[in-house]
Design a protein around this nucleic acid. Structure first.
Lengths: 340, 340
DNA sequence: TAGGGTCAATGAAACGTTTCCGGAAGAGGC
DNA sequence: GCCTCTTCCGGAAACGTTTCATTGACCCTA
């Protein structure tokens, strides 16, 4: 059973290929009677245009590629879902790929997306300044929207104000009396880690409190890293009295480490997370977080891409900064005396 | 700057198109010297085959479509991620689409995936017996793997043994002395809800305990539904002494309802969840769950599809039943007297 | 040496669209 | 009644591959 093509439609309607195509794409004028006949043929044959052939001819796949660290992270999943929905509404589909924040995976995926002729790409990157990554990104023939990254070069970007969020979080802890605050975040080769470290410093500087450099842990953004760093911190003779998890999926690791050590939150240690989740809301006590709307980010990313794809190819790059919000819940308290 | 095509490669190497194609696809024999020349040309020009043109000609996109209820649900995200990884290893990409468990969304997405000539589809469905959905599914020209669904017709399927999992969970509660146990799950038009209800009945029957039909809530699988049903149950004069959340993202809703009512787990009410999550593990007390390996499911789904796509088109449909595991944690206790 | 058989390379067709170009037919103005 | 303009349709080219049928060269055998 052969697939029914536009040729079949044309034959059934007794018109030429070109005419059939014209009524399908409803752009130019065609005689109403003939249009009618073609539409009837389409309906009768259940004709569906072949998207691959259309892509071939139009040189556009109407598909966007997304490279994301790990779609298992709820925040990233909502981002992807929102982007997918917004893109869908505009007739675009979303191809997803997970890099695991690994440089070589990322390289391979970029190659893949370009070979598959994506119309656009939404991505994070494992390292903003890696030369090879930068070269490949720059050589990409389609528009790219960066998610919470600011690599050198002219890219549209969705940025979060982690700096201010972190500043508020640390300010809150300092006000409570904490003087040994730890920050666990990712490598400073990327915007969110850098911005958080800045906010961390900002708050300390404003309060005139010195930072213990060994309490500043910049490794990787994973849950596992959250667990390891927190375990190490808590195992020291002079553990911090508060830990800020500066990564969207690090909170669970930090909490596990705390649980494993038998520490109580917030009596023995105060905790602040980044990005809101079921876990943060329903833990007991509920966890204070710096949060933002990831779904809005997804929609904005789609918007950015669609703008570029519908005529705005030469627009200057736009970087949108999204606010973060400090939500105080029950996981912070003044430090207990024995730890001071 | 035109894209470099195989024609450019052929010209640069001084051979014909066909020859260039043959060395790229390395299938038939070609003179070593010529092969060398072509490979040099490819490297020099940085030629990348155009996947769209290849799809066009080969009649295969090497792309799989996934229709999933909501990728924000961690269990589904790990499924998707595992499937994507396994497919990627075989040279397939994954196009994702979220149906929100809405019948008409699902219909539209199926149309979309067929129009885009996906090589295969992995999907759930909002209703197994809906006539129109069934017709569209059956008319799909590519292999389909069902995720935890058993619609009529011959489909490969990944099934979970929710029945046995639920039986064990309820047995556990009955042993603890509970006599009013509520089950909140999705509509019985789909396998997981049906299987859970069966397991629920199995356990009661085995213990000779009667079921209060008003404690059997089959609505929809969402978090929100978990909240609403649990709120309603807890607001009754004779609330159940235990609630089983029979859906992968219902636990948070149920816990929120309990929290809102001011009930304590497990003193006032025992809780069991379905599918393991950070939330279940890190809540206090940690929540007893029926769990399984969603990533393994994803890999198996990819396997099923790849088998069919590489020669096994005529294989009889395979339905794989995956075990569930009952994990007892701290959220269940004997019912307190005042509720009995 | 003629003829059959192999091997490798060429050229062309095909995949299913869209779009451009030319031409036919009809309408309208003088 | 003729010329021009407009409208609409048909035919064909093009998008970038893969693959099929041909062809040409060469070797081996009778």
């Amino acid at each position: 059973m052969r697939r029914v093509t536009i040729k079949d439609v044309a034959k059934a309607a007794g018109v030429s290929l070109g005419t059939a195509s014209r009524v399908i794409n409803a752009n130019t004028s065609v005689d109403p009677a003939i249009r009618r006949k073609v539409q009837d043929a389409i309906a009768a044959l259940r004709y569906q245009p072949d998207a691959v052939a259309q892509s071939m001819r139009r040189r556009s796949t109407r598909t966007i590629g997304a490279i994301v660290r790990d779609i298992t992270v709820p925040a990233l999943a909502s981002f992807v879902q929102a982007a997918q929905q917004a893109l869908h509404d505009e007739g675009y589909a979303l191809l997803i790929a997970c890099s695991g924040d690994r440089r070589d995976h990322e390289l391979e995926l970029l190659r893949l997306l370009s070979q598959r002729r994506m119309d656009g790409v939404i991505m994070t990157t494992a390292a903003e300044d890696d030369a090879e990554l930068a070269a490949v990104r720059a050589a990409l023939p389609m528009p790219v929207v960066m998610l919470d990254r600011t690599p050198p070069g002219a890219f549209d970007a969705l940025l979060l104000d982690h700096r201010e969020g972190m500043r508020q979080a640390v300010e809150h802890l300092l006000r409570l009396g904490h003087r040994r605050i730890a920050l666990i975040t990712g490598a400073t080769g990327v915007h969110p880690a850098r911005a958080r470290v800045q906010g961390f410093r900002d708050a300390h500087a404003a309060a005139g409190v010195a930072i213990d450099p060994t309490c500043l842990r910049t490794g990787s953004f994973t849950d596992q890293s959250g667990f390891l760093e927190a375990s190490a911190l808590l195992g020291r003779p002079d553990p911090p009295t508060a830990i800020v998890a500066g990564g969207i999926d690090m909170l669970s690791g930090v909490l596990r480490a705390i649980q494993a050590r038998g520490f109580a939150v917030p009596r023995d240690i105060s905790v602040i997370g980044s990005a809101d989740t079921d876990l943060a809301m329903l833990a007991s006590p509920p966890v204070t977080v710096v949060r933002w709307d990831y779904a809005e980010l997804g929609r904005a990313g789609a918007r950015l891409l669609i703008d570029r794809l519908s005529g705005g190819a030469a627009l200057p790059p736009r970087q949108i900064l999204f606010p973060t919000e400090f939500i105080s819940r029950g996981s912070c308290a003044p430090p207990s005396r024995q730890h001071c």
